[in-house]
Simulated scan of single mutants.
Amino acid sequence: MLEPEDLSCEDMAKILTEVLGTPIRYEQMALDSYKQLFLGMGYTEAMAQGMVDMDIAGADGIFDALQRTPENTSLTSSRHWAETVLKPAFDAI
């Protein structure tokens, strides 16, 4: 599902900072470190590489070709999700 709007990682960090009331920043990881993160969580080599490849494809704009339609676009914005799902879970910790 697509979001109702295009957000950069920096946009998402800003939304999370505002909703959670704590500083959130986006920091891009080196791809090898990103892969090692998944391997450390128990992903197989192939799955970890798939996650890296998916990240590369996203950065290269693979999703930019999709047109939003009612069938492929969520009505829930990231801000709404952060306010209604993430914030309560965050506050409960």
Score class of each variant (00 low, 15 high):
1 M>G: 06
1 M>F: 07
3 E>R: 11
4 P>R: 04
4 P>T: 02
5 E>N: 05
5 E>Y: 11
5 E>T: 06
6 D>L: 08
7 L>I: 05
7 L>F: 07
7 L>H: 06
8 S>A: 08
9 C>R: 13
12 M>R: 12
13 A>L: 06
14 K>I: 08
16 L>W: 08
17 T>R: 01
17 T>M: 04
18 E>F: 10
18 E>I: 03
18 E>Y: 09
18 E>T: 06
19 V>T: 01
19 V>Q: 01
19 V>K: 01
20 L>F: 10
20 L>Y: 01
21 G>W: 09
21 G>Q: 03
21 G>N: 10
21 G>K: 05
23 P>I: 02
24 I>C: 13
24 I>N: 01
25 R>T: 14
26 Y>H: 14
27 E>S: 12
27 E>V: 14
28 Q>K: 15
29 M>A: 12
33 S>N: 14
33 S>R: 14
33 S>T: 12
34 Y>V: 01
34 Y>Q: 07
36 Q>S: 10
37 L>Q: 13
37 L>R: 15
38 F>Y: 15
38 F>S: 07
39 L>S: 03
40 G>Q: 09
41 M>V: 02
42 G>S: 12
43 Y>I: 01
43 Y>M: 10
43 Y>D: 14
44 T>L: 06
45 E>S: 11
45 E>P: 01
45 E>F: 10
48 A>F: 12
49 Q>M: 11
51 M>F: 15
51 M>H: 13
52 V>D: 05
53 D>H: 04
53 D>F: 08
54 M>H: 13
54 M>Y: 15
54 M>D: 15
58 G>Y: 15
58 G>N: 14
59 A>E: 14
59 A>Y: 08
59 A>W: 09
59 A>V: 04
60 D>L: 14
60 D>E: 15
61 G>N: 06
64 D>T: 07
65 A>H: 11
65 A>C: 07
65 A>T: 12
67 Q>P: 00
69 T>K: 11
70 P>A: 10
70 P>G: 03
72 N>K: 04
72 N>G: 03
72 N>P: 06
72 N>A: 02
73 T>R: 02
73 T>Q: 08
76 T>I: 15
76 T>P: 00
77 S>K: 05
80 H>M: 13
82 A>R: 03
82 A>N: 02
82 A>E: 01
83 E>G: 04
84 T>Y: 04
86 L>Y: 03
87 K>T: 00
88 P>A: 01
89 A>H: 07
90 F>H: 04
90 F>G: 00
91 D>H: 00
91 D>T: 05
91 D>P: 00
92 A>F: 05
92 A>P: 00
93 I>H: 11
